[in-house]
Amino acid sequence: MADNVTPRVRVPRDAAAGDTITIKTLISHPMESGQRKDSDGNTIPRSIINRFTCDFNGESVMEMILEPAISTNPFIEFQAVVPESGTFAFTWYDDDGSVYEESKDIAVS
């Protein structure tokens, strides 16, 4: 597992039913591309977050497949519709098998 991987998510605390809201996520990760060489000329092995998913109450909002061309500390901004109060689940999948999770509740009036 890459060191110090910290997911951050910004979701509004509340919304009206059926509202479209903006979600921003940022996760600290080197996203080692597999294209770089160390000072001895050896290729540094690829180590990236390769997939991200966002679900709301078990239903999919968005899935993203990430390639080595995504910048260090991947930032993703997208939109979701919230039909009811519930919980967003965010999951990042690392090349090394690690899974990083975060969740956020939203109150819908």
């Binding site: 110090n4 910290t6 951050r8 921003k24 940022l26 500390n73 930032f75």
Partner: peptide, 12 residues
Amino acid sequence: DFENPAMIDADN
């Protein structure tokens, strides 16, 4: 601050 990647380190 959310978009500033340095704030991850500042939080640490």
